[in-house]
């Protein structure tokens, strides 16, 4: 079939649009990486674009020497690992019963759960309740209050619903009790979905900062995102530069601008590294969810 002129024009437009889109999406990241590796004066005069100018690692050296970043990293890592584990267990505990027809009262429980997606106590009552539980300024406040994302649990329920009942019946006939059926039949069939949901949760933990602002006082528990905010958005570069051993203001200014970029890179690097390998799981997650919300 011959293409019309307007079709060819459209295809060209579409191609160019896609390229522009990719550049717009990627440029900020490339620029941040390039700036973090450049010399300070090039950055402060705004000359850096795609490639570093005056390549050096001074900013990273300063960041590495900054104790808070390390503590922050360790905390974030712990919150992510422990938090995701709790998330997965709780999500399966909730999603599996909700997916079973024989679960008496299923519709009532589904309503109780789904209602929280549309109405909630809001910031202040939640804060006071968490305070009343004595969770304020503890490790657990970063992992327990968000133990279940209702949306993710419903995605998981939808997935469990798709597993044929016959498989379970067969397992029961073979002498499995409910526990064994779940552990030996259902969960092995769900690894891909569990991975997907797990990634959603893990990214959420890695990126979390607001709960830390509200619930944590002790800076020894702060996640890395909070240090990023302090350094870049609240402009507390001085602290980190002083830690780097530079005494006079001149030396301080040598890295003041590039440090911000280096901190951004440090905070975002793990996500950028795993992203290409795991992104297909994320897409799958949206697909499962879109079948029936």
């Amino acid at each position: 079939m011959k293409k019309s002129n307007s079709r060819i024009a459209f295809e060209w437009f579409n191609f160019v649009f896609m390229i522009v889109l990719c550049v717009v999406m990627l440029y900020p990241f490339l620029n941040v990486v390039a700036s973090s590796l450049s010399n300070n004066s090039a950055v402060s005069r705004g000359r850096v674009t795609f490639f570093p100018i005056g390549f050096n690692l001074e900013a990273y050296k300063a960041v590495v020497r900054y104790q808070h970043i390390w503590t922050g990293y360790k905390n974030t890592l712990l919150y992510t690992i422990v938090g995701t584990a709790i998330n997965l267990v709780m999500t399966v505990l909730g999603a599996y019963p909700l997916s079973r027809k024989q679960f008496y009262g299923r519709s009532v429980f589904t309503f109780i759960v789904a209602f929280t997606m549309f109405f909630g106590g809001g910031l202040i009552p939640t804060y006071l309740i968490i305070n009343a539980y004595g969770l304020l300024d503890t490790f657990w406040v970063m992992v327990i209050p968000g133990a279940i994302s209702t949306y993710n649990m419903i995605i998981m329920r939808t997935f469990f619903q798709g597993i044929p009942v016959e498989l379970e019946e067969a397992a029961t006939i073979d002498g499995c009790n409910d526990m064994q059926t779940l552990w030996k039949v259902i969960l092995p069939l769900s690894t891909a979905s569990l991975m997907t949901i797990g990634m959603f949760y893990a990214v959420g933990h890695w990126n979390a900062w607001f709960n830390a602002v509200i619930y944590l006082r002790d800076s020894g528990r702060f996640p890395v995102q909070l240090w990023l905010r302090t350094i870049v958005l609240q402009n507390q570069v001085r602290d980190i530069v002083e830690g780097s051993g530079a005494v006079d203001t001149e030396a301080e200014n040598l890295v003041a601008d590039t440090i911000k970029f280096a901190v951004i890179v440090v905070a975002v690097l793990p996500i950028l590294c795993v992203y290409p390998f795991v992104q297909k799981y994320f897409v799958k997650g949206v697909m499962i969810g879109s079948v029936k919300g």
Binding site: M90, P97, L98, R100, G120, G121, G122, P125
Partner: peptide, 27 residues
């Protein structure tokens, strides 16, 4: 008949009461 499912669901319902419905009553 589905007591195993109830047992499973127990921590979940406790979670929802403690962290979603309690704040609602806190309103």
């Amino acid at each position: 008949k589905s007591k195993f499912l109830y047992l499973m669901f127990l921590p979940v319902i406790v979670y929802y009461i403690m962290f979603c419905y309690a704040p609602m009553f806190g309103l």
